[in-house]
């Protein structure tokens, strides 16, 4: 009886659906990054197909979130940033997909480059976990500032590795233009993933203060 009155008066189902979809979306971010890490580690280019599948699921989730928000989930003051968050999470998955496709187009990585790329891929996985933890701070009590700080520190680490990677790349012998272009694309996409995760964490922080 009380449940029926609560549902009649307050609803809340759409909000729960959005939160669940966002959790699922973030789970895909982590899965895609884990697959990318294994792909680089084992030089298994077939994994790109699985990442592309995840990207398709990610698109569907983003559209579902938009639909629920359009139907009136959450108060209007939150909807724009919630959708922006879903968009950025989707961009992260897109970027992982682009990285995996670029990886299928380059020859086997040299050991010193591979080591750094793997470091970045591992950090990306950790950052995905941190992003999930930061998102959970919107639902249960925890220190959001600490979570986003960890994300920022990891992103700075990726920036440092990026600098080292570019220096190493400049010393490499490149056989032809396309080999160099594809390798450059791969590195650019790989190091951009952490930037997008940091952007998503920023949106979580904006959301967290948007009712203040």
């Amino acid at each position: 009886m009380f449940g029926k009155i609560k549902k009649l008066v307050l609803g809340g189902e759409k909000e729960n659906k959005v939160i669940e979809k966002m959790r699922e979306h973030l789970k895909y971010v982590k899965e895609a990054n884990e697959l990318l890490k294994v792909m680089i580690e084992k030089d298994d280019k077939d994994l790109a197909k699985e990442i592309c599948e995840i990207e398709k699921h990610g698109d569907v989730i983003r559209r579902d979130i938009a639909l629920y928000l359009y139907e009136g989930a959450f108060i209007p003051g939150l909807r724009a940033n919630l959708y922006r968050f879903a968009e950025i999470v989707d961009e992260i998955i897109d970027e992982v997909e682009d990285t995996s496709i670029a990886y299928t187009l380059i020859p086997k990585l040299k050991e010193e480059i591979k080591k750094d790329c793997l470091r970045v891929a591992k950090i990306n996985v950790k950052m995905s976990e941190d992003l999930i933890a930061a998102f959970e701070c919107l639902q249960s009590e925890c220190e959001l500032k600490d979570r986003t700080l960890v994300i920022r520190v990891r992103e700075e680490e990726v920036d440092r590795i990026k600098g080292e990677l570019y220096k190493k790349m400049m010393k490499m012998d490149i056989k032809n233009y396309w080999e160099g272009e594809m390798l450059s694309n791969f590195i650019r996409h790989l190091v951009n993933i952490s930037d997008l995760i940091e952007d998503a964490a920023d949106i979580i922080q904006i959301l967290n203060v948007s009712l203040s």
């Binding site: 307050l10 909000e15 919107l138 009590e141 967290n208 948007s210 009712l211 203040s212």
Partner: peptide
């Protein structure tokens, strides 16, 4: 306002009601 956002949003709806 120190509570988590999604919980605050729910409280807010109850309070407005």
């Amino acid at each position: 306002l120190k509570k988590p956002l999604f919980r605050v949003e729910r409280y807010l709806k109850v309070l407005l009601l």
